[in-house]
């Protein structure tokens, strides 16, 4: 902590302490006085959509927020790849300094034991299927698209560590970019059915809580995911509607995004 020595450091620490104590004392007032507000309304309507109310919140009540949130990680991936060297542009008329070279990482996999090498591929396959399980069961249990993407790309990273350049999971440039585009584009376009039939973008026409969508749409998007919910008040036939589909789209997008980040960091970026 060389940076905090001297008079400046002492002043900085005092200022931070004052800010911190002020912030903390205001939080003391807030403790126990939180107003539930809109969350309680969401919770009271939970049994009409999907049992996992967080999934409902993420993809139905605030579905459009989540679209932007999904776009955040897409942007994060594209920008980090741009920093590494993908898609650097220069003015044709006035070229500036050349961009820095992006070199691939060097792997030293000789030290790994044989058992790890033998079990690497099965572990990657099992992680893949675990990720797929998480994304398909998200409307009923915890987890969702983002988690699926993170698990899948963790498998990719694991395989890269075990096998180095000779990675058994060969996410190519085109596959990663394509799956990311398909994910975010699919999420965006899943708003269209609701928009065209009810006028509301991303209306969950499968669940149709408010009864404003045509019944045929409810049948198409709702029936494949209909669930029976046994509660104290009786059995509810709830339908998460398009939530499972959006989940898959989100998972694709996250696989594309984090996969692109890993790809760019591990292999650098060379143009063909």
């Amino acid at each position: 902590m060389n940076e905090l020595r001297g008079k400046r450091g002492i002043l900085a620490v005092i200022a931070l302490l004052i800010i911190g104590i002020g912030f903390l004392s205001s939080l003391f007032e807030l403790a126990g006085n939180v107003r539930p507000g809109v969350s309680q309304i969401y919770n009271s309507l939970a049994h009409l959509v999907a049992p996992n109310n967080i999934a409902t919140w993420v993809y139905d009540w605030r579905g459009y927020d989540t679209l932007l949130e999904t776009a955040v990680i897409y942007v994060g991936a594209v920008v980090s790849a741009m920093v590494i060297g993908r898609g650097v542009v220069q003015m044709k008329s006035c070229p500036q300094e050349p961009p820095a070279q992006s070199k691939p990482l060097e792997f030293h996999i000789e030290t790994l034991t044989v058992i790890l090498k033998y079990l690497g591929l099965p572990a990657a396959i099992l992680l893949f299927s675990y990720g797929i399980m998480v994304v398909t069961a998200s409307s009923t249990s915890g987890g969702g698209g983002f988690q699926c993407g993170v698990i899948m790309t963790a498998a990719y990273l694991l395989a890269a560590i075990f096998y180095g350049k000779n990675n058994p999971i060969r996410f190519g440039k085109r596959f990663i970019i394509g799956i990311g585009a398909a994910g975010l584009g699919g999420y965006t376009l899943l708003g269209l059915p609701g928009f065209l039939t009810t006028g509301f973008w991303q209306y969950n026409i499968g669940a149709d809580v408010w009864g404003i969508a045509p019944s045929i749409m409810r049948f198409i998007f709702g029936e494949p995911f209909r669930l029976s919910l046994v509660l104290k008040e009786g059995v509810f036939f709830s339908s998460p509607g398009i939530i499972p589909l959006i989940n898959v789209a989100e998972a694709f997008n996250v696989i594309g995004a984090i996969g692109l980040i890993y790809f760019a960091f591990i292999y650098g970026w060379q143009e063909e």
Binding site: Q40, N43, S44, A46, H47, P51, N52, N53, I54, W57, S141, G142, L229, V230, L231, K232, E233
Partner: peptide
């Protein structure tokens, strides 16, 4: 946790 489990009551869940 805001996940409806079998046998829960909706009023209880809301609060």
């Amino acid at each position: 946790v805001p996940i409806l489990l079998p046998g829960m009551s909706t009023v209880e869940f809301t609060t």
